[in-house]
Simulated assay, not measured.
Amino acid sequence: MIAPADKAVARDAFRHADALEREVLRRFPDAWRQLDAWRQQPPVVWPQWCLLPMAASTAVALAGRSSVGFGVAARAPVAQVAALYAWRYSRAVYLVEPGLLHRLLSTVPDALTLDDVTGLPSWCVYVPGGHPEFPGQGLWAHLEHDAKTGRPELRLLLDAGDGLEAMLPIPVYLDRPSLTEALADFRATALATTDGQRPTLDGPDVRGAAGDATVANLADRVDGLLAVIAYLARPEADIVDAIRPGARPGPRRTRIARDRQVWAVGYNTRT
């Protein structure tokens, strides 16, 4: 079904994910145990479409940093820890057929709502690079429930392939009427978070921020990526096991996956 070149992309993706996980555990040796404890004995209630709010990853990444300024804390790899933790429940990569990927990346999608993405087949999806139009090493995406504000978010993580610090987190709020407005809230929240404040387990609640040229440029960069993620969440999406073509994604796992999984996306319907 998939070509040898696709298999090589999958192998590289798994090697990269393994390296990122080792980097997380080198910096935060107890991270997975601590996050498991949050899930087993939840201190707060959150929706079932979210595996674990990022407040937990914030606590792990900022452990022992209570005396540092927020500028340092803001650079802690909170988004990276959250994505890698969620990805371990599937250990899957999604190889998108090049023609379909081109069409999706050329799409300007409507604003996403929570209902558009709750059907994601994994708690965190990982679409590796290997396509000239796709960013760097790939894209990670998962759903987030902000523990403070209650806002639903689609969390994108653009992966440049050079370790945790080279991964760019982009939160997309799912309660705004357009992508530009969602990203304007993201930028305003980021600016408020780094405005000399002290570390907290969750961020400020900025809503209805105005967009500008920076936000518009970011929207141009992100819209095609959102189309890819939205496609993966569709119930009719062409997603099959790359090794066992008859198998399709089932319910999201509630236990850590031990085996790796390669999903072929769009290969049955390519034209």
Rank of each mutant, 00 (worst) to 15 (best):
L232N: 07
L157H: 07
L218P: 06
L105S: 03
R88M: 11
A76R: 05
D36R: 14
D212C: 11
L114P: 04
Q197G: 15
L100S: 11
D212S: 10
E153A: 07
P249W: 07
D259S: 13
A213H: 14
P251Y: 11
V24L: 02
H142T: 11
Y89L: 06
L105V: 03
A86C: 07
L183G: 03
T271W: 13
N217K: 14
D18H: 08
A92F: 04
D18V: 00
T113R: 14
R39A: 15
F70T: 10
A3I: 04
F70E: 13
V108I: 07
D159F: 00
A166D: 14
P249F: 12
G119W: 01
W38G: 02
P135R: 12
T200N: 04
D205S: 07
L101W: 10
G136E: 04
G69N: 05
G196M: 12
G150S: 08
V240S: 09
R207T: 14
V44Q: 02
Q41N: 15
A19W: 02
W46D: 02
Y231Q: 11
G130D: 11
L143S: 05
Y85E: 07
A257Q: 03
Y126K: 06
A3L: 14
L35M: 15
V96Q: 10
S66P: 01
G246W: 14
H142V: 00
G119Q: 02
R176I: 06
A216C: 13
P152M: 04
V44S: 12
Q197C: 09
Q197K: 15
H131T: 12
A141K: 03
V172S: 09
N268E: 14
Q80A: 01
G64F: 06
A188I: 06
I170Q: 01
L154C: 08
K148F: 11
G161M: 02
L183T: 01
L114N: 03
L158T: 02
A184I: 04
A257H: 02
N268M: 12
L105C: 12
Q137F: 08
L105P: 04
P43W: 01
R244H: 14
P47T: 13
L139T: 00
R65T: 09
P109H: 08
W49P: 06
A56Y: 04
Y267M: 04
R26M: 06
T149E: 03
P43M: 01
L35V: 03
E165C: 01
L164A: 04
G211H: 10
N268I: 03
I239Q: 03
